[in-house]
Design a protein around this nucleic acid. Structure first.
Length: 596
RNA sequence: GGCCCCAUAGUUCAACGGAUAGAAUAGCAGUUUCCUAAACUGUAGAUAUGGGUUCGAUUCCCGUUGGGGCUACCA
């Protein structure tokens, strides 16, 4: 049991004994004592004034006396206004050190037979264009959340629903047919997803030109958008695809294969993976069946043009189309089918969708529709809604080419890492091959940390011009600290110093205790991150620990220490910090270089 | 028009309703005989606006202003 919980329970007891009143856990605010103030754990006593009918100071005095007396771990206390600051005994902090040093799973909860099965959907790309910065945030969040949910003792199935069919693919297909001259990834030397994306842009170019022409000839913009020859051709391809026209399906397969090969490279670079991949081409028919069932049962209704709709106005939502007038299915139809298929495949306790907040409405509607179709789990779907990545120039639009390409971005950052290392004269530390691997780790560490350290729910600003910092509150800063710890440990080994974690410790210095306090918070950070679905909490935790360590490291020359016991203790401490950093960062999918 | 989200130093981000609103960057001023200076230390700088709720509000509620999203027979 961690110290906060112990203090909280003891305080509830204290209030009961002293004032004869019951208080619940929410009323007992236990927090870490501010650094400027002496003490380790602070209790806010304002909520108890009503019960004690005394001043804040006297109330705190009462509680402090009681706790110091009854709780072994509380050595002493001090009172500042309505804040009761408790001094926790040395033994507690040393126990934390022993645990973090010896327990490989320090901070993680193990899965058991009772563990919940959480399915987490993320990435979910369209197969008509390469991944961009927005997808990067999605992928990094999805992967990290999966790791965090796992660390909280759940079973996790990472899943990806590939939007491999639909009008968008048909646009690329049509453009390739028209203007591609048989170009392939092999003949062009382009990565498959980039090649297909090129034709998506090509389509839009022609489409826009046609609209301009039609509008000039007197049509309204809306009419023009519906009558442009290229969109009619794309729709025809979609219809043929759904009718299983051999030639169309063949082209579709070919182009998707190119795209998958490209995606695989990008996923590998980003270090994300999946346990189960679904394809909409497999699930949309199930969704269609479900919609038709709903129509038959009177849940949905059909318009004169044969399109099928749901009327959700009774639930504060709108009319929603589920099947087009030509009978083809839309995004929502597919999501219904995918959900059904998943719940058939797995005993899912909780379904999490990692999808941008622009789709908040979509998921409200989806949950509502599944509920109407009679699925009890419909209401329990959790949309992990993250904010958009904004550029200084505004929103990214792939059709207009104003996107930051994922592959280009990573490549550019590796280049920056390489140049920066050369500039700092770090290249001699390792062989060329190892160095290249380190640059990769640093570049990805910078990118991942930059994106994951911000509250996922909020929109964030990303300026590719300024690239990403390698100094300050960044991934490389944390990696660098880790590398220095490893360096100290290597040097200790070189000098034949053995590290003994069981040796007795006489006294704790302030900075040492500060570090132990930080380490002790790791399990709580993981839990909080899990409850809030927020990698940012882990990033923040890790940064505080690292900063604390850097100050310590600067002030205390571990290997220059004369007292052998003290040196040993500090080595144990350093190694422990390194382990915690490594575990924390692995929850963000960030690798730690041994040297940099 | 309707619905939803956001607003904190020059900039990018923090702050379960709790102590003097924290960091990082950019600026200025310093620290390398010493385990990696991608480090450390000092300095200056912010809650858009008007009300309300209470012991206490950046946080909760209402209004105003400014920004973003959704409101597709796109996905």
């Amino acid at each position: 049991m961690n110290i906060e919980t112990i203090i909280q329970k003891a305080t509830i007891e204290a209030v009961k004994t002293l004032y004869g009143a019951e208080v619940n856990e929410n009323q007992v605010q236990v927090q870490n004592t501010r650094k400027e103030v002496s003490g380790d754990i602070t209790i806010v006593v304002f909520p108890f004034l009503r019960l004690s009918r005394k001043s804040p100071e006297l109330t705190a005095e009462d509680l402090g006396t009681y706790l110091a007396d009854k709780v072994d771990l509380v050595d002493s206390f001090s009172v500042i206004k309505g804040f009761l600051n408790l001094e926790i005994s040395k033994d507690y902090w040393l126990d934390v050190l022993t645990e973090s040093y010896n327990d490989k799973n320090f901070g993680y909860k193990q899965t058991t037979d009772e563990s919940k099965l959480v399915m987490i959907e993320y990435s979910s790309p369209n197969t008509n264009k390469p991944l961009h910065l927005g997808h990067i945030r999605n992928n990094l969040l999805g992967y990290s959340i999966s790791e965090i949910v796992k660390a909280n003792g759940n079973k996790v199935v990472k899943t990806n629903i590939v939007n491999d069919r639909g009008i968008h693919i048909c646009k690329s297909m049509y453009a390739w047919q028209q203007w591609g001259n048989g170009e392939t990834p092999e003949t062009s030397g382009m990565k498959g997803d980039h090649l297909v994306g090129k034709y998506y842009v090509e389509f839009d170019k022609h489409f826009k030109a046609e609209i301009v022409e039609l509008v000039e000839s007197g049509l309204s913009k809306e009419e023009a958008e519906n009558q442009a020859p290229s969109i009619i051709a794309a729709r025809e391809l979609l219809r043929k695809w759904e009718a299983k026209d051999a030639e169309t399906v063949e082209l579709w397969k070919t182009m998707n294969t190119w795209v998958y090969a490209g995606f695989d490279v990008t996923y590998k670079t980003l270090g994300v993976d999946f346990d189960k991949i679904y394809y909409e081409s497999d699930t949309y028919l199930i969704g269609k069946d479900e919609v038709l069932r709903g129509l038959k049962e009177g849940t949905f209704y059909q318009k004169e043009d044969n399109s099928v709709w749901a009327d959700l106005s009774g639930d504060g939502l709108d009319q929603k189309i589920l099947l087009r007038s030509d009978g083809t299915s839309v995004y929502m139809t597919q999501d219904i089918g995918t959900a059904k298929m998943r719940f058939n495949d797995y005993p899912i306790d909780k379904m999490v969708y990692v999808v941008g907040n622009e789709q908040n409405y979509h998921f409200q509607v989806l949950a509502n529709l599944l509920d109407k179709l009679g699925y009890s789990w419909g209401k329990d779907l959790f949309h992990f809604s993250y904010g958009m990545v904004e550029l200084p120039s505004g929103k990214m639009k792939s059709r207009e080419g104003t996107v930051v390409d994922a592959d280009d971005l990573v490549e550019g950052m590796i280049k920056v890492a390489r140049e920066m290392s050369a500039e700092l004269g770090k290249l001699e530390l390792q062989s060329e091959k190892e160095a290249e691997e380190t640059f990769r780790m640093i570049a990805l560490g910078a990118l991942k940390y930059f994106i994951l350290k911000v509250d996922p729910r909020k929109n964030m600003m990303f300026n590719p011009e300024e690239s990403i910092d390698f100094n300050g509150n960044t991934g490389p800063f944390i990696q660098y600290t880790y590398a220095r710890i490893q360096s100290v440990l290597r040097k200790a080994t070189d000098r034949n110093i053995t590290i003994d974690a069981s040796r007795e410790v006489k006294n704790l210095e302030v900075k040492e205790k500060e570090l132990l306090k930080r380490i002790s918070l790791f399990p709580a950070a993981i839990q909080e991150a899990g409850e809030n679905y927020s990698p940012a909490i882990i990033a923040n935790y890790c940064y505080e620990l690292v900063k604390e360590f850097n100050q310590f490291y600067h002030d205390h020359h571990i290997l220059g220490e004369q007292d052998a016991d003290k040196m040993n203790f500090r080595l144990v401490l350093a190694e422990s910090v390194g382990k915690v950093i490594q575990r924390a960062m692995s929850l963000l999918g960030i690798e730690m270089p041994e040297r940099m």
